[in-house]
Design a protein around this nucleic acid. Structure first.
Lengths: 101, 101
DNA sequence: TACATGTGTTAGTATTTGCTGACAGGTGCA
DNA sequence: TGCACCTGTCAGCAAATACTAACACATGTA
């Protein structure tokens, strides 16, 4: 873990919208349109947020075929634990590996 | 801890520059001009970053009088531990208090 | 055919954030 | 007086991010 990776992870969840997305996907996978309705958010915007979350590894998506033959893109939250302390930050900035996860 | 507070905390450290500032201030308080030199950053910019970090509680600053009578603004890192998991996020989004620190 | 549902992408705009340069003011010292 | 330090703030520009509206295309159903 270096400083860029760490700040990338943090930036991915440093948003109330994206925290809301993760909260919605904890324990209950949802497809994009359904999630967009629940979050009262446009699909285009939701795709942008999901892309950032998926790139950082906080959610994962997969296509699923519904009973009536429609392709649904389901997303779910990925289990993780991020523990941040001053020491963890100092280690990351000094580019040391294997310090946190 | 609600979603806004949590995302605020995360946003405050979701920056390689600000991670670098914290790393510099771990175990060694520095005054602004000295820190600006070590980070190779303008003071104006550093003030902006320090303001965000201080508002979020990651660093704390105080004026100190040097031997030769100059006022120096020292900053130091505040000890903390932020533990982020999907459950913590869900709790924050649902506005529950007392779940994480 | 037409409508409701879904995925996925793009162009363009609005808002926020990061950053620079310049300023005003203070102390100590030669 | 002038120089070398320091704190603190502001206007303005640059770049990144968030967001909207619109498009193309697919399936099932009336």
């Amino acid at each position: 873990m270096n400083a860029e990776e760490l700040s990338g992870q943090l930036a991915a969840i440093a948003s109330t919208q994206r925290l809301g997305i993760i909260a919605h996907l904890v324990g209950e996978p949802l497809h994009v349109s359904e999630l967009a309705r629940r979050m009262e958010m446009s699909r285009a915007l939701l795709y942008m947020h999901l892309a950032k979350l998926e790139a950082a590894g906080f959610v994962t998506g997969h296509l699923e075929l519904s009973d009536d033959g429609k392709a649904l893109k389901f997303f779910q939250a990925v289990p993780f634990e991020l523990s941040i302390t001053p020491a963890v930050i100092a280690a990351a900035v000094n580019n040391e590996e294997g310090t946190n996860g």
